[in-house]
Amino acid sequence: MAPYRIAVIGLGKIAQDQHLPVIAANPGFELAAVVSQRGLGVPGVPTFRTPAELYAAVPDLVAVSVCTPPDARTAIAREALDAGKHVLLEKPPATTLSEVEALTAVAGRRQRLLFATWHSRFNPAVAEARRLLEGRTIRRLDVQWKEDVRHWHPGQDWVWQAGGFGVFDPGINALSIVTEIVPSPLSVAKADLTFPSNSDTPIAATLAFTCLEGPEEASLSASFDWRQEGEQTWTIEIETADGTLLALHEGGTRLVINGEPGVSAPSEEYQRIYAHWAELLAAGRSDVDVAPLRLVADAFLVGRRHDTAAFHW
């Protein structure tokens, strides 16, 4: 079967670090073009300033990967669907739940496919944790997701603007794992959100969850912080009612079971994302899960605001 001709829209850090090299290495896809408002390019393929120029010049394009900041994704995805293209969305798929629902409806009407990616889910350790937790009752959940925004988003002011998610940009990765592996749905009971005085989005957050199907005394919490320097922390610990203790480390790439080594594999999240995307295209099936985005929305709805010093790069 001929490879799917695909274009990447938005050539920021994630597109250059992950999407472009993974597409180049996957025989199921052929990079047909890129779209960059800044005029950035990729050797061997044309660059367009707007998606409209892309669709006019490359009519045999099958799909696009939308890698822009979140606030631009909905309009770009809608334009792609209207042009008859299948759409892969970087995480988070949009800035609001309503936007995702609207895009899903448009994709259905246009008979096009929509894939809302959550890259942290695509690790073998996450899949094994989900298998081990199936049917079990969660007694304790502790998420520690702390990193240095200056390292991961250098100079990217959009993360501090309304719709930029702030610390939930990485925090939603943890929530995507939690909603994948915890057997029962969670809701946000309390949230404390810390905002720099010059920012529309939080630099730190602490969440407390409830699980309607779990024990009332369960301790379920998450702590996110974008001010951690040095070694970064991406850990999820879960204790079940029968005493099983699972710990996912290094962003979900390593699983420890009752203190003993379990699954450990190199991070090949985006390789698995595109393998799944090829399967979805072949099967004619969309994959859109809004559970992680819903928890973020809940956090903003119930969260208490706390102010801290202004942030400067």
Rank of each mutant, 00 (worst) to 15 (best):
E216Y: 07
R131G: 08
S120L: 11
G230L: 09
Y55A: 12
S264Y: 07
A107T: 03
E90S: 05
S221I: 03
A125C: 09
A297H: 08
A105G: 06
I76L: 14
S221W: 02
G10D: 02
S120M: 10
W118F: 01
H86T: 03
R285L: 10
A127H: 12
R254G: 08
S36R: 05
D71R: 15
A282L: 11
E101Y: 02
P266V: 06
R305C: 07
E231Q: 14
R150H: 11
V66G: 00
P27H: 04
T235E: 08
S65H: 05
F168N: 05
H153C: 11
A204W: 01
V143R: 06
R5T: 13
H249K: 14
R140A: 15
A102L: 10
P261F: 09
P266E: 10
L245P: 00
V288M: 09
P215T: 13
A125W: 02
F165K: 08
V35F: 03
R150Q: 15
T244A: 06
G166C: 11
A80E: 04
S176Q: 06
V22K: 02
A189E: 15
T179V: 02
L248K: 09
L20K: 03
A162L: 13
R121F: 04
L88S: 00
A127F: 04
L248M: 09
S197E: 15
L20Q: 03
R109M: 07
L281H: 00
T308F: 01
V159R: 15
V58M: 10
R140Q: 13
H153I: 00
A189W: 00
P93Q: 03
A94Y: 02
Y4T: 14
D289N: 10
P202I: 12
D148H: 11
I9E: 02
S187M: 11
Y4C: 07
A275S: 10
I23K: 01
Q156K: 14
R227C: 12
L193S: 08
P69D: 00
D169E: 11
A77S: 12
Q111D: 14
A309I: 13
Q111H: 13
D287S: 14
D242M: 12
E269K: 09
R121V: 14
R136I: 10
T194W: 12
W158A: 09
Q18M: 04
Q111R: 15
P183D: 04
A116R: 04
L61D: 05
H151I: 14
L133P: 06
G135Q: 00
E30V: 09
L54T: 07
E237W: 02
N123D: 12
H153A: 15
V182M: 01
T235N: 12
A72K: 13
A297P: 03
L280K: 01
I181F: 01
L89E: 02
E90G: 00
E250W: 07
L132E: 06
A107G: 05
S199Q: 07
A102V: 05
L54N: 07
V87I: 06
R272H: 10
D242V: 10
R110K: 13
F300M: 03
V290W: 00
